[in-house]
Simulated assay, not measured.
Amino acid sequence: MEVLQPGTGPVASSTYLTADPGTTLWGRLPGVDDPTVLDLEDGAVLTIDTVSHEGLLPDQGSDPLAYFGAHGVGVEGVLRDAVVLARELTRDPELDGPHVVSRPIGVRGAEPGDLLRVTLLEALPRVPYGVVSNRHGRGALPGEFPQGPRDVSVFTPVDDAGLASMPLADGGPPAVRFPTDPFLGLVGVVPAQGGRLHSVPPGPHGGNIDIRLARVGASIILPVQVPGAGLYVGDPHFAQGDGEVALTALEASLRVTLRVEVLPRARALAEYGDRRVPFVETPEAFVPTGMDPDLDEAVRACVREAIDFLGARYGMAPHLALAYLSAAVDVRVSQVVDRVCGAHAVIPKVHLPDGEPATPRHLASAEVAS
């Protein structure tokens, strides 16, 4: 797998944003007082180099060359921008989050009340490895894991076929293999309130929503809160399970290409309803979300969002929408580790009036058997 150092390798768009101290923040989301690093026309496509925080953090030595070198990665296999960011950016480990986040990108014509649709067109791994970490007091099982006195970071190689591997025991040979499916865990717009928010908890502005369905071909739809929207991205993932239970997913740097579209208020209402929190759309499904520090409340919020969406787009009565959701729609846990928990509902498009009806599984099975 080719290592995509800054400015090398394929770049799909003529608009290319590298990750350097002038284009990124560490541990905070951009606020209303942050100037944009570039301004785009509605519908523009851009390519962004993102950098994972894993390998940069204090419990890993704050030295990517030394950290990844200890796992057998040569100097040319460590991203130069990661080395520079670890050396030149500052963060307060007690007050700031871990994520490297792009500074805001303006989108001309975006106004509060509109929606911003951000579609992931391409996600290229920049390195052939990633890291999964579990840190004390965090994750789904704080107090139980890590089982020793130290934080745990699992270095995870990825082969040319895109398969990640882990051993069954420390120091053992690769035994567990799983496919990668890259996406951005963190996509957001500048919130209306002043100041830079902590990078970990997601909210109405988006941010660290960690929904693994937001992979290539999918769109994240965000409610614009300030003129120009102020798009930012970060937290690149190679793979994640629903829940993200250790604390992190398989974190690793990506080169992503995005299409950014403004949906004016009237069109936004017709297509998605009055969305006040992030919404995901894949080629196969609509994915309303819910967020709250209490996971039960996050699920309830997600169900309400799904009911509202079905009513706004299809005119479905609320009691019938609830019945349909109960009979045919999966409500999944997005993540339980970001202070604010997330849930999302996966509504198959084939079920809906403008979709192609699906063949019932039992009939399809009968046809195969015959």
Rank of each mutant, 00 (worst) to 15 (best):
S253K: 00
R255N: 10
R259Y: 05
L231Q: 02
G243Y: 04
A249M: 04
V260W: 02
L254V: 11
V245W: 13
T248R: 00
G234M: 13
G234A: 12
L231W: 05
A252C: 09
H237A: 11
E251M: 14
D242R: 08
G230R: 04
L254R: 06
R259K: 14
G234E: 10
E251R: 00
G234C: 12
A249H: 14
V260A: 03
R255D: 08
E251V: 09
R255V: 09
A246Y: 11
V233R: 04
E244P: 10
Y232M: 07
A239E: 08
L258P: 10
L258C: 09
L250V: 05
L254S: 11
H237M: 12
T248G: 02
A249C: 14
T248N: 01
T257N: 11
V233S: 06
V245K: 08
F238V: 01
E251Q: 12
E261T: 13
Y232I: 00
G243R: 03
Q240V: 06
L250Y: 02
V256Q: 07
L263M: 13
L250M: 04
L258M: 12
Q240C: 05
T257K: 12
L258S: 07
L247V: 10
F238I: 00
D235L: 02
D235V: 04
D235W: 06
P236H: 01
P236K: 01
A252M: 09
V245T: 13
D242Q: 08
D235P: 08
P236N: 00
L258K: 07
